[in-house]
């Protein structure tokens, strides 16, 4: 076979499978354009994250010092002097009250779903939880007003107070903790649970000695994500707690209202006062700090659990 014949063969093949060079070039250019526009979309989507932090810091940094987080607001209009201690303490109250309701309820239901649930009950409960996650927070606020806060009609008559707001926030937090706990327990390798059951442990013993330990990281993540969600909530507090510039004297009735970080920012940004707008930005920095701290804590915990699982 000569070289000439070979070339002719290649040419024939080229006629059967025509390679259109400009077509390929065009395809490549389109691909580049798609890459660029997808990357551009990502840039726009990521922009607010950085710009929110940047703009809050650039305006709020003058006010950020230790006394900002350790003194109560004072001056006129209220908040012009002093700090946001009332809001930090108030958030602590709300998170503790909400957790008292949501943590046992959420973890218990999550465990039930993954340990005892029949397929049918499971799908119904999961659906209810997912629907509850989608309910707008303003609707939760109205529900909280009628069952916890108002002094007329049905309900508990707690007034505008930390207890009313905390329980409303607990209602919001419960479905989150439930769903994530269930996912965390389902992620445990089946052999762990089956092994415990196979040597004669009851489900209670298996839970106590195996499941809780193995799913600890996931359950912590669930609780932290719930807390992360409720410290940003403002709308439910409008109708169940509103705001207090001082310290609460109790958790129900008059004097039971607490300050809240999100509420403080909302009220300050409504005021026609430049200094309060700046303080709102400074408070945003503090709130973002808490949010990111929870976020990082959550990621660390789940990363560590994954590492531990790999070591076992």
């Amino acid at each position: 076979m000569t070289e000439k014949e070979n070339n002719k063969k290649a040419e024939d093949a080229g006629n059967y499978f025509p390679v259109n060079k400009s077509y390929i070039k065009r395809k490549k250019i389109y691909n580049r354009i798609a890459y660029a526009s997808a990357a551009f979309a990502f840039t726009i989507g990521a922009f607010p994250v950085f710009h929110i932090i940047y703009s809050a810091l650039i305006i709020g940094y003058k006010y950020l010092n230790w006394s900002f987080v350790s003194t109560l607001p004072s001056g006129f209009p209220i908040g012009a002097k002093g700090g946001i201690l009332n809001a930090i303490i108030g958030d602590l109250y709300l998170v503790i009250i909400a957790s008292c309701l949501a943590v046992p309820l959420g973890i218990g239901s999550g465990l039930y779903l993954s340990l005892f649930g029949k397929k049918r009950t499971n799908s119904i409960i999961r659906l209810l939880n997912e629907l509850m996650i989608g309910i707008p927070s303003v609707v939760w606020g109205i529900m909280g007003f009628y069952i916890f806060s108002t002094n007329a009609g049905l309900g508990f008559h707690f007034g505008f107070s930390a207890l009313a707001a905390g329980l409303t926030l607990g209602f919001i937090m419960t479905p989150i903790v439930t769903l994530l706990t269930e996912q965390a327990v389902n992620r445990i390798p089946a052999s762990y649970i089956e092994g415990a059951l196979a040597i004669g442990a009851t489900k209670w013993q298996a839970t106590k000695s195996v499941i809780v330990k193995a799913a600890m990281g996931g359950i912590f993540t669930a609780v932290l994500l719930g807390v992360l969600n409720i410290i940003g909530q403002t709308a439910p507090l409008l109708f169940t707690n509103y705001y207090n510039t001082g310290m609460p004297t109790g958790i129900t009735g008059p004097g039971g209202a607490v300050g809240d970080m999100a509420m403080l920012i909302f009220i300050y940004i409504h005021e026609p006062s430049r200094i309060l707008h700046y303080k709102a930005e400074a408070a945003s920095v503090v709130l973002l700090f808490f949010v990111f701290a929870l976020d990082i804590g959550m990621r660390l915990i789940s990363w560590i659990t994954v590492k531990i699982f790999e070591m076992l």
Binding site: G45, A46, P48, V49, H51, I52, S55, A56, I59, L228, I231, G232, Q233, T234, A262, I265, F266, I269, H277, A280, E281, S284, L287, L288, V291, F292, D295
Partner: peptide, 18 residues
């Protein structure tokens, strides 16, 4: 992108206003 989802809506509001 997950952090964007976690930012409280009141902070989005303040960012919008300012």
């Amino acid at each position: 992108i997950e952090i964007l989802a976690g930012i409280p809506s009141v902070i989005f509001g303040v960012w919008g206003v300012l």
